[in-house]
Design a protein around this nucleic acid. Structure first.
Lengths: 155, 155
DNA sequence: GCATCATGTCAACTATGTTGACTTTAAGAC
DNA sequence: GTCTTAAAGTCAACATAGTTGACATGATGC
């Protein structure tokens, strides 16, 4: 895994602004890095990375999700899912079992250990968001969400 | 280069929310994807990708930047810079020349073609931001910036 | 028994990053 | 002039995270 950059953000203001919105473009970039920085450091210490966290995050919010649905939500191929998923199963952060009602699909769940790691990693990200929202109040937070929703739905 | 995902965002609301701020975490992820989607499609058509765009973006805003400074700003190793940078030079989107005042460093500049591509790619991203800002007004945009600044400086 | 769906796996490839170990080029010290 | 140093360039080996294609396995439905 690439080292989580220590210096990202240092240069946040070091570029001439050619356009009005240059600052916004750069903030999106450094904002994403800033939000995930501590979580990535924590995950690296656990021998995990962003891809593992994405899996844990989704399974935490969709217990008993089938592998096919997980693939759909993550938007990657089953081959790409294979490696990180197997690592999580080997490390017993996830369990997989055929549905009791004789389905073809396998259902994924977090173990207690998996829950703990998901909570901690996501918690680092939430902490960053919470501190930022605290600075702008409810109205500001709502505006941030509205902007991001518009951008996220741009496709 | 990985295909720029078509389906990202479709599942934006499909997860149960375990915490207050889950929506914000997901918006950061899908927001980043949404902002870069069209630019990445455009770049792919030019046989380029995000890493090339980052180089073009920085050089556009720091004409005559030395390679060492570029490395610092991008936060990657010179070996990682090597390949995309050489492609841009071969494709004559960038020029490099030793400083006239007999310096050791080489100075990078965009060619007209390089400027055109940088403008177009960044323009796609600015368009997305502009549309989102238009929905929330000046105050909302200012709040968005304030939130992102706090997050970006989190390191 | 057979088709089909969901899953699993293998191989080859691309892209983007890392570290380590060099070389080359230019400038400055002496 | 030679030597040192700084900046840049290059080569190899590696890791991660994705892609496609091809094929195997397991469970269900008929």
């Amino acid at each position: 895994m690439p080292k989580t950059s220590q210096a990202a953000g240092l240069h946040r203001a070091s570029l001439a602004k050619l356009h009005d919105l240059d600052a916004a473009l750069e903030l999106m970039y450094y904002g994403w890095r800033g939000m995930t920085l501590e979580a990535d450091d924590y995950l690296a210490k656990q021998g995990l990375s962003r891809s593992h966290h994405r899996i844990l995050y989704v399974v935490a919010r969709r217990p008993d999700i089938a592998i096919g649905s997980l693939i759909e939500i993550l938007g990657i191929s089953k081959q790409a899912l294979n490696r990180p998923l197997n690592l999580l199963l080997e490390r017993k952060l996830l369990t997989s079992q055929r549905s009791p009602e004789q389905h073809r699909s396998k259902l994924l769940r977090l173990t207690a250990a998996g829950q703990r790691i998901e909570q901690t990693a996501s918690g680092h990200e939430r902490k960053v968001m919470r501190e930022a929202f605290d600075r702008v109040g409810t109205r500001g937070a709502a505006a941030w969400m509205a902007v991001m929703e518009t951008i996220a739905d741009n496709n």
